[in-house]
Amino acid sequence: MRTAEARAETGPGAGLGDEDGVHAAYLQHGPEIYRFVLRSLGDPGAAEDVTQETFLKAWRHAERYDPGLASLRVWLFGIARNAVIDHVRAARVRPWQSALAGDEAVQAAVHDAGGPAGDPSERLVGQWVVEEALLRLSEQHRVAIVQTHLRERPYDEVAAELGVPVGTLRSRVFYGLKALRAAMDEMGVAP
Rank of each mutant, 00 (worst) to 15 (best):
H87G: 09
A182N: 13
A109V: 04
R181I: 09
Q140W: 06
A109K: 06
Q107C: 02
A159L: 02
D112Y: 02
T148W: 08
A109F: 00
S138P: 01
I145R: 13
A83T: 05
A183V: 00
G126C: 01
G42R: 13
R92W: 05
P165G: 11
A105E: 08
R89W: 11
E48N: 04
R2W: 00
A6D: 13
V74A: 02
G118L: 09
A47H: 12
V50E: 11
A182M: 07
G45A: 15
V37R: 02
E32K: 02
V88I: 11
V37F: 01
R39S: 12
Y26A: 08
A105M: 08
M1C: 01
G114W: 09
A190E: 15
P191V: 05
R181T: 12
G78C: 09
L150C: 02
G13P: 06
K178E: 15
A105R: 10
L150V: 14
M187P: 15
W59R: 15
A62G: 02
G30P: 12
L177T: 12
V93D: 07
G188N: 06
V130M: 04
A70N: 14
L72H: 00
A90S: 06
L180G: 14
R39A: 09
V166F: 03
A14N: 10
A6S: 04
P95T: 00
A159K: 15
E186V: 10
R142D: 03
M187L: 15
L76I: 02
L38M: 01
G163S: 03
Q52Y: 14
S121L: 07
P191L: 12
L76Q: 08
R153K: 09
A47C: 00
L72Y: 03
E122Q: 05
L76W: 02
A80C: 09
M1D: 08
F174K: 15
G11L: 00
A80M: 10
V88C: 08
Y65G: 09
G21A: 01
